[in-house]
Structure formats: structure tokens, C-alpha cells
Design a protein around this nucleic acid. Sequence first.
DNA 1: TATAATAATGAGAATGATTATCAATAGTAA
DNA 2: TTACTATTGATAATCATTCTCATTATTATA
Lengths: 157, 157
Amino acid sequence: MPGRWGKGPASWWHGEFKGCGYRITIPRQIILKVLEESSGHLSAEDIYLKVYKIYPAIGLATVYRTLEILVNMGLVSKFDFGDGRARYELIQDIKEPVHHHHLVCTNCGRIIDYTDFLEEEIELIKKIEKKLSAKYNFEIKNHTIQFNGLCDKCSNK
Amino acid sequence: MPGRWGKGPASWWHGEFKGCGYRITIPRQIILKVLEESSGHLSAEDIYLKVYKIYPAIGLATVYRTLEILVNMGLVSKFDFGDGRARYELIQDIKEPVHHHHLVCTNCGRIIDYTDFLEEEIELIKKIEKKLSAKYNFEIKNHTIQFNGLCDKCSNK
DNA sequence: TATAATAATGAGAATGATTATCAATAGTAA
DNA sequence: TTACTATTGATAATCATTCTCATTATTATA
């Protein structure tokens, strides 16, 4: 979790959270902990099950409610990979979002993260965002790039 | 519908359809007609209602079934803009997909199409696809680029 | 530290989009 | 025209997500 430790492992988000008027509760702490220790692409139920192992009193509704807050605060990204359930990922570094894009296999649903961007790739995204902001008077918060296709196992069949 | 007319306005997809073993039926013809004459971002229910005006015997299930086929055949794109329902758009030209990307207002849900790409934008996408195909052995079929943020009306409040 | 105010919770009901079921119908090749 | 069977429409079922509400926990304050 580069860029977030150093202020105490479990508290980097506490200030931001309180600043928005939210209370620091046990369920929320555990949900954040689970998000930190997992490798992304988690559905709400995935998260629920992981939290349940630590804190069996957890309710599914609380997981959804907490995720909604985190998404609105910009701490978590929400994705749709076309399998009928949303996926959630903690954003690694808010200041400089490390946007990893996704390769989604439309046959088996496998998801590959893609983080090794080309220099020009990052440049171009910035350039496009600037252009779009100006032209459409849009305040761009983030973007999503997703490539769909067939993974090696599904195309060689 | 550039690149598609010329073989008879209502038949460009018939051959492709039959080639896949599908029958040309009244409901399917009307659904295609509606997709052709609409400007994208249509939910299944939007399409159902438009078809209903022409052909009141239509069933919602048939709309979903037909859309699924069209998406699998690569004739229609399916999007998720985060409002809980899928959106469908006819792909303009299959040979050279004119990928229009989207600006989505996370507050009011407004969607703006963005089609005026930079030269380098198209180049770069091709380059990235080539790189990803090679590295991950992924057969890339299409991609989605979406910018999220606040539209002019929602950010000036 | 005790207290009051109220945000947050968990359980379960409700919602709403999408999918499955099935008997009736329509498209197709012959 | 016929026989075969894919497709259809109605509706039930599914399933992720959201809502409701009585109970509990957090927090600022005394």
C-alpha cells in the first residue's frame, strides 16, 4: 500500500472518513482491512465472506452501504465485468491514482490486470481528459479502460 | 449507417444471421430496425417500448434474447453506466468499428458521446492492443473507454 | 467517565433487472 | 404443403442490490 503507510497502518483513512462526517465503526474497519489485504476484483459477497470470517456478526447490507460510501469518497473503484455483479477495488494511491486497466475474457470471465503502461499512454490520457473537460465542460474524476476478448485458454479451443 | 447500405436497406444483417443458424423473424427484424433508427444508450426496456409501438405482440424476454445474440455476434455493444441497467448500441461498421467513447456524469447519469478522436488516440489503442495480445496471449475483440465525472450542470451547483 | 443525540447496524423484506420454463407458434428446407 | 424445430410470449424464478425499522454503538459534551 505505497503512499499510505507511515501514519499508522490502520488509520490512513480515519481522518478522511471523519472529515466527511462518518463514524469509525468495527464493521467499517474490518471491511477496509479486507480490501487492503485482498487483490482486487472482489464482489460484495466476496468481501462479505472475508469479513464474516473475522466478524461473523457482519450483515451484507452493511458491506453494500460501506462500499457505496467508499466509492463516493473516491477510495474504492467499482467495476462491471459483465457477469451481473459489481466488483470493488481499493484505490492504491489517491494523489496519483495508479490506474490499472483490465483485460476481460468474455468466455470464462477471467480478468487480467494490466499495469505496465507505455509512457505515451499516461500522457495521452491526461491530454484527452484536458480536451474533454474543456470541450464538454465536464469535470472528469476518473476513467475506465477495459479490453474484452478471449484469453489463451478460451481462444485455443 | 455508412458501410452497411447498398445491399438493400433491411437486409445487411440477414446473411450474417442465417450464417450463424439463426432465423429471420418478425420480432428480430423490428428490434434491428429500432436499433438502427435510434441513437444509442438504449436500455432493454427502451427498446421493448419502441418495438411495442410497431409490434404490440412483442415480449420483453424476446428483446433480451435477441440482444444477447446480437452482442455475441458483435453487432451490438453492451454497456454499463452504473445505473443498474444495461445499455445497448448497434455497432455502426463492423469492419472498422467506430468506437465512440462515453463521458458519464456520476451525479445525474447524463451520457455524452465522444467521437472526435485524436489521430494519436487511434494509433495508441492499436499499439496497446497489439502489445497486450502478445504479452498476455489474449485475443482482443473490442475495448471500452469511459470517463466519469460531473457534467456542467452538476459541477456548478 | 456517564450521558444524550443520532449515525450505523443486522435481519429480512422489497425491488427491479435479467433469465429460465414451457406450451403454442412461426420460419425453413424439403 | 409438410415436418421439423427454432422462436416466441407470458409468466415464474433468480439474484444482486436497496430499503425498512427496531436495536445498538459511536461520539461529542458535560
